[in-house]
Design a protein around this nucleic acid. Structure first.
Lengths: 205, 205, 205, 205
DNA sequence: AATGAATGAGTATTCATTCAT
DNA sequence: CATGAATGAATACTCATTCAT
């Protein structure tokens, strides 16, 4: 008798729904996920979902927005604050971060972007601006720092942060499509990093 | 009123249809492409499409068979016959081949597989068996040859053909999602190859 | 413009739909009846029909359940409760019941089963279990009771409830195919019953 | 070199096709039988089928016409020529004839008539005139002969030849729908005949 | 007479979205 | 806020029928 038995958490609803949507998308992909299914997972009625998200498309966008940007923010923050050498950073926190991605919701979002992104140009732009561009920027900062400190020699590699992200994207796809084992994709990520670092440190002398 | 109703070209039909299907898939993706649409593009009736391809899925497989498998076959054949050094081969024919892919129909198929492959395990298996597995195998042969001849030192890289394919997949996606320019992805592919070769040739410390 | 778009009568819907389905099946048969047609007759959208019945087949089962099974239930109940002599029961309630069938929805269902039953083993099984088997069982009980009481002599007839149902099935078909008049088929049913009873009571002396 | 290797038997074609159609109908029913299937069974092209039968419907009618009438003719002829007593005839040739039916093509036709007959009024009429009416007539002659000779007493049974045909129709359906065993339906047919004969011979009270 | 490539109308089923309550 | 009954557009696949050869 000390309050309503079930708190109607107006505040949390949207997040509960996007979380449910992420889970559903992860299992079935965007097109194959029914709004009904998302509602059921979130424990609400279908009608309520439509109260918060005008269309399924909006829901998709909300999922993308919610689950990736924070990670990028975290990466950028860590890079900014770090006082490690660039190599140590790459081999330590960065590798850790990057090996996490294929196991995280980010993986789902990447897949969703590839599969459906071309239908939603504004989402693509959003994703580029807030995720890809900033992520590549962060890596660029890191590499430049290594070059400036003399740790790395300047080379095409230090101008192509893409090479550092590539194995993540590839791993996500490889696991998605061919059920590759985690160790297998971890090896790919690690080896690529090794190769890149070796190249950047390469005795130019 | 605009020509004979029946054209009777049994021989050409399947290829006309797969070509139309590829075009349609490229524009809309697999799921969003209606069989009706393919038929219209091929200038035939829907019924005829089903005469040649039992299901839409079979049609997709035929597309893969027509437009991707031959390229893999060609690569394998060239590798088999080549008497170039492994490095020369990688920097010559292989690079050429690989730079072609993101501009070719293969790019469409890769995208389709990523986007919708998980719904069609059959297709995935088919693609793995006929394209991925054989492609990786061909590269493995090439690397091994280089190791055996003493050209390359044995290292994780020579055991991971994936690293050579990675930039292609990445480029396809990058162009698809963010309208990356051809030169940009070409640079990625070339640099990756440089780095890998350098590593394989590197002083075995 | 002719009333509220949504009527919201969950309770009645299934029955409204099965009634419409029965009517449609009666006119066209099962296969030739489009779900669209049933929906229109019931005054609802096609989608709603599928909300209540997963498939057309389920819809048919529901028709059987609604319009045939209750009659069998009733017959069984009456037999159980009756304290009449077996002959009186056969000549009274049973004859009445049986003469009703060819004019009832049961007739439609029998025709549907004959015409299309073989395509739907599920349906056949369902019909056997819920209608035929139970109906024959009920008659068997009745006959056995007559034998046990000494009213009837034991003979092949008392072991073959089929003989009592036969004229109903025959009448349904005869009316369906050749527009036989009700009196004609009533005579057939009555005479058959007379003959069977006479035989069971047969002066074995 | 003494003639064409394959004789093109214009004459036999229609019958080959109706035979194939009967077989197909027996297995699948009318609606579920594709014209393609009939053509394949007959070893000809689909086009040729359409040369002989304007529509699938015509083909159906031809099947009905071909496989039943001759049997009725035979029955009538035997009855006409027979000099046996009516009872002996019923228990001998008639029973034999009647037990054959559920195993013969007639069974298929009966089923087809029930399932699809209502769509083809002219076929129904044809079937009535040529099969049912004449069959019932033949039995009537037989019964009347028994009455006239004093073998049977006049009763409703001797006016209702339907009662003698009934178990056949019932058996066809019972076997079709519920996979009844031949012995089971034979028993039904025999018992019914016993009962009827007993009744006709019964002490005229 | 015979073929079989080609047609296209027809249909069960799904699912995002709406709206009366 | 919240529900869930109701809608209807959308789509892969089938098959009787046609007709150029």
């Amino acid at each position: 008798m000390s309050g309503p038995r079930f708190r109607r958490r107006k505040q949390d609803r949207p997040q509960e729904i996007t979380a449910a949507a992420l889970a559903a998308f992860a299992e079935k992909g965007y097109a194959a996920t029914r709004v009904d299914e998302v509602a059921k997972r979130a424990g609400v009625s279908k009608g309520l979902v439509y109260l918060y998200f005008k269309t399924k498309e909006e829901m998709f966008k909300a999922v993308v927005r919610s689950f990736v940007v924070p990670r990028i923010d975290a990466l950028i923050a860590v890079i900014d604050r770090s006082e490690m050498s660039s190599e140590d950073f790459l081999r330590g926190p960065f590798l850790e971060f990057v090996k996490t991605l294929p196991r995280s919701p980010v993986s789902v979002v990447i897949r969703l972007m590839i599969a459906e992104g071309h239908k939603y140009p504004d989402l693509r732009q959003f994703y580029w601006d807030n995720v890809v561009s900033r992520g590549l920027g962060a890596i660029t900062v890191l590499l430049r720092r290594g070059v400036d400190s003399g740790e790395f020699r300047r080379s095409p590699v230090t101008e192509l942060p893409h090479l550092f992200v590539m194995p993540v994207v590839f791993s996500v796809i490889f696991r998605l499509l061919f059920d590759a084992k985690p160790e297998e994709t971890d090896t790919i990520i690690e080896t690529q990093l090794d190769v890149l670092i070796a190249h950047m440190k390469g005795a130019s002398q």
